[in-house]
């Protein structure tokens, strides 16, 4: 099972490398959304500092939600999902590998440029580790939600928008605890409770997402 997970992961990784511009445009999209805030709110550094962490989270959410729709749709159209149903392995294994790879190629670049983002909106750079940790946890949960939504909307009209409509209400807890951990930082409080909450939400989502994605993919195959 772990071996098969690794094979799927490797395939996914090879595909993502062959489409490296997608990763970059995803990143640029994130930075652009972030740039909208100073322009809309005004350049006042105090203001930006106050909303800084919220801005990062919103930019991450908004830039990612439309991307999730592509998680399974390519493989669905090319007929890969149904073929992998014959590999004598549960589809959940495929879905998990896919989500994990997607998580890495979206979260890692974001965490790499995060220090620069922090500098740009005046967040104290010494908080980088804490912010990165909460963001990494939050994006993990988001990816699982995205995976669920993506498997459910396979074959639907206007799947990208629909996926976002499904994800965003479900993702509120992640946003709340993510931003509150930032708030705790700026008030010199411990952010551990929020980090643990994020972790708990992630674990809940892992338990929920695997069977849900499996059921969603199976249903999509049956109606191909």
């Amino acid at each position: 099972m772990i071996l098969i997970f690794w094979y799927y992961f490797k395939r996914e990784f090879e595909i993502s490398i062959s489409q490296i511009t997608d990763i970059l445009s995803q990143l640029v999209f994130f930075i652009l959304i972030m740039m909208l805030f100073p322009i809309a709110l005004g350049p006042d550094p105090e203001n930006l500092k106050e909303f800084g962490i919220a801005i990062i989270w919103i930019a991450a959410f908004v830039s990612l939600t439309p991307a999730y729709d592509r998680l399974f749709s390519d493989d669905y159209i090319h007929g890969f999902i149904e073929k992998s149903a014959h590999n004598a392995q549960p589809l959940g294994c495929y879905a998990a590998a896919k989500c994990f790879c997607f998580y890495l190629i979206t979260a890692l670049p974001l965490l790499i440029i995060l220090p620069f983002i922090c500098l740009m909106i005046g967040i104290n750079i010494s908080f980088y580790g804490e912010i990165a940790l909460s963001l990494a946890l939050g994006m993990f949960g988001m990816t699982l939600l995205g995976g669920i939504a993506s498997s459910l909307v396979l074959g639907a009209r206007r799947a990208a928008i629909l996926g976002a409509v499904l994800i965003l209400p479900l993702s509120l807890p992640i946003l709340i605890f993510g931003c509150m951990s930032g708030l705790a930082l700026s008030e010199d409080l411990s952010m551990r409770p929020h980090i643990f909450m994020l972790l708990a939400i992630d674990l809940c989502l892992v338990v929920m997402a695997l069977p849900a994605m499996q059921a969603g993919l199976k249903n999509a195959i049956e109606n191909a």
């Binding site: 098969i4 094979y7 799927y8 490797k10 395939r11 090879e14 595909i15 062959s18 489409q19 390519d74 493989d75 159209i77 090319h78 007929g79 890969f80 149904e82 073929k83 992998s84 014959h86 590999n87 004598a88 392995q89």
Partner: peptide, 30 residues
């Protein structure tokens, strides 16, 4: 446990990878 090969369009290959890579992936997975 009976191995099944369903060969029908769409064939399940990823358009951006080479033919060999696609074939190797299927072989290793099975």
């Amino acid at each position: 446990t009976l191995p099944i090969w369903y060969i029908g369009a769409p064939y399940g290959f990823h358009p951006n990878l080479s033919a060999r890579k696609n074939l190797v992936q299927i072989a290793t997975m099975r």
